[in-house]
Amino acid sequence: MASLKWENRISKTIIHVMLIFGSIIMLFPFLWMISTSLKGNESILSDSIEMIPRDQKTTLIDGVERPLYEVSFNNEQKEMVLLRSLNEGMAEFIDPANPDESVVLPLTKQKPVRPMSFHWQNYPDAWNAQPFGRYFLNTIFVASVSVLCQLFFSSLAAYAFAFFRFPFKNAIFIFLLGTMMLPQQALLVPNYVILAKLHWLDTYLALIVPFTASVYSVFFFRQFFLTLPRDLHDAATVDGCSHMGFYFRVLVPLSLPPFLTLGIFSFLGSWNAFIWPLIVTNSTHLRVLQVGLAYFLSDAGTEWGLLMAASTFSIVPLVIGYFFVQKRFVQSQAMTGLKE
């Protein structure tokens, strides 16, 4: 009995260690993003991996900012300036108060003076670089509406494929699936031309309507609906239930897992969309978060501190949202794989 208890404990410990290890790996990029968002340029570019933002203390010597080191020689500790590195690991240091006297010491034995320093200013700087308030509203609006529409229309199409009998049903379904093979890039120009002909460019319609249906969602819903007993449909029909009645009263309540799964994934997809919103909009008031983030990348370099600050605040709503739907999300992931 006792050995069983021990066995149980050991296996639980092993599982926990693995889970903790896994979560550290998953969390590290996020922590690194937050840490970078609070760093100054010099520490972002430095070699060492520092989670806590620190800045090298410097002093101006002959018009050039030079690094300060905690130098120990003649049994005393002193803050001195690194003037230059010499060969074989030696370096020349000077006392900023008395620049004429210099000492040559091994570089690796001296400690750079790097006090903690948080660059909170990156956040307001990033926020003010672009109208992020507006971008947030747009992203939330576009993502919510396109996800809700997509779930509605795709599930209706899937309902037809799962429960109706009509000529060429399978052929049409395969044809629909075939469209998934076309790469997005190939569709960019034709889709743009269609929107231009509809006079929808530079409107919310261009951002939302192309995403109100998705073949992947139709496929996903259809597969789920096929696992539901057909008797339900027959019974409802016998009882005089209309198609929409069955859809709303029976099908949707029974299909929450695929609704949630697809809802979450397409919401994330919409939240992260970049090329399409950029191509079809011109006005700043219609642009979305990801387009705003691209502002910090450019031709001759990236402003990492600002980019990471903006990335941090752009995922905050997603993280908060996740805490609310976490339980449902995990549930839906677990259930969608089941078949009766």
Partner: peptide, 14 residues
């Protein structure tokens, strides 16, 4: 347009 690459795509499409 964010980058020259997107700019080129958008010019072609437009």
């Amino acid at each position: 347009m964010g980058s020259y690459d997107t700019l080129q795509k958008k010019i072609l499409a437009s």
